Simulated assay, not measured.
Amino acid sequence: MTTERIEHRACFGGWQDVYRHRSEVLGCDMTVGVYLPPQVEQGPCPVLYWLSGLTCTEQNFITKAGAQRYAAEHGIILVAPDTSPRGEDVADAEGYDLGKGAGFYVNATQAPWASHYRMYDYIVDELPTWVEADPMASDRRAISGHSMGGHGALTIALKNPGRYRSVSAFSPIVAPTQVPWGQKAFAAYLGDDREAWKAWDTVELIRQAREQLPLLVDQGDADEFLQGQLKPELLQAAAAEAGHPLTLRMRPGYDHSYYFIASFIGDHIAHHAAALNA
């Protein structure tokens, strides 16, 4: 894989880097933020993959979340990829919730999306193959994300039992088959067969999960998308019915922004550290 480091900044005793690399899966160049904690000087460190939400690039998390401080404390590498394929020949659409910046972490099956929009394969296979080939990274991994990225983190963990030591999410889209954001994206990327959509829906996947990996979810009760797009009560009901371990924390007064993420990212990284370093 051809890679180029395009940013390199000292941060909490480690380094916040950004790389550009060629993705064969997506058929385009991609950028990804990688935070290396100071502990990499002593040996391989576990990796936390962060999936961002609609309209985001790798920059949102690395500049707004304040996660590097906690990653440095716990000795965790943070990997924050872009949210979709990019480039002039990559299909796009009007609006923020479809196309570039809105990959939804699925493998598209419909034209014109299928040739590039394979974010699931990129996150699960191609990106970790590159990251974990570096001797600074171990094969102990966790996954987290926000909104569309929370959807991605939860579904990817549920679809890949044994691959991740832990999973968490902020304000995730837990039932994309039942809300406008997901319905618009899935109709475009996956076609009209709503049964096929269920393979990318946390509420559906939790009913048949083959691993009881505990889910940690934080949700602000002042989130402007709470009722129309997020519906955490659907996840709570599905987890209760399936007997799947879920910690759902409703946070009074918090909205959908990175102010919310920055307030509790330390809790999430500590949660992952406990599993990754066990």
Rank of each mutant, 00 (worst) to 15 (best):
D125K: 11
D125G: 14
G87V: 04
V32L: 14
P214M: 04
L234R: 14
K159N: 14
T63P: 08
G27M: 04
Y164S: 10
R207H: 05
A133W: 03
E224P: 14
G243C: 10
T57F: 07
D92W: 09
P161A: 06
S147T: 03
A93M: 05
L226A: 13
M148D: 11
D134E: 03
D139Q: 15
R249D: 13
D255L: 04
A262T: 12
R5T: 13
P176N: 00
S23D: 04
A275P: 04
Y117N: 10
P245A: 05
P112M: 02
L213I: 11
S138Q: 02
S147Q: 11
I6G: 09
E88A: 14
Q183H: 02
W130E: 06
M119P: 05
V217R: 05
L215D: 06
G253D: 00
H244T: 08
A238V: 03
F12Q: 10
R5Y: 04
N160Q: 10
D223K: 13
R251H: 11
N107V: 10
V217E: 02
Q68F: 08
Q212T: 12
Y259C: 12
V90H: 07
D192C: 03
C28Q: 01
C11A: 13
L213A: 09
T177W: 00
A67E: 08
D223A: 14
C28Y: 01
K100S: 04
F260Q: 07
A274I: 00
V79W: 14
C11T: 07
V106E: 03
L154Y: 13
A102M: 10
D29M: 13
E94D: 15
W50A: 07
Q178A: 03
R5E: 09
I156A: 05
V90T: 12
Y70R: 08
A67T: 11
Q229A: 08
F12I: 04
A273D: 00
L127Y: 09
A137C: 09
L127Q: 12
D29C: 11
R251T: 15
A169E: 09
G182A: 02
H21F: 15
V32A: 13
V174Q: 01
Y117V: 09
R141I: 02
L248S: 14
G99L: 09
H268G: 13
A237K: 11
A237H: 02
E7M: 12
A196G: 12
E73M: 15
D201A: 11
Q227R: 15
P112L: 00
G152Q: 04
P44N: 06
H256R: 10
A67G: 13
V47T: 06
H116I: 04
N107Y: 00
A239G: 05
K100H: 11
A91L: 04
M119H: 01
C45R: 00
A237P: 04
H244Y: 14
S166W: 02
Y35D: 06
M119S: 09
W197R: 15
D267E: 15
P85Y: 02
P135Y: 01
D192K: 11
E41W: 02
L216E: 07
G13S: 03
V106K: 03
D255C: 05
Q212I: 07
S168C: 00
Y35L: 08
W50F: 13
A273E: 01
W50K: 07
K159C: 09
A114Y: 03
K100R: 15
V79G: 15
V106W: 01
E211S: 07
R5D: 01
